[in-house]
Amino acid sequence: MMIPIRCFTCGNLIGDKFVPFQGRVKGGEEPGKVLDELGLKRYCCRRMLISSIDVIDQVLPFYSRKPEL
């Protein structure tokens, strides 16, 4: 649903790096280089960002505000 907070394997904090990672990759940067610069040196942490999709973004549009009475 959302990016996990820690790496499943080693427990390193990755949650706060997903937004900058996506922004930079969508901006045309090389994903590997971005991961290096974010300080993710092990492949367990790197796959967390590469393989994650925030499904919550696809769900939330269906939860529009209820009309206020």
């Binding site: 706060d16 529009s64 505000r65």
Partner: peptide, 15 residues
């Protein structure tokens, strides 16, 4: 928290 920018949850309007 160690970092201020860890996403915990996303809220739609009204949630």
């Amino acid at each position: 928290p160690v970092s201020e920018s860890i996403p915990l949850i996303k809220l739609a309007a009204g949630q």
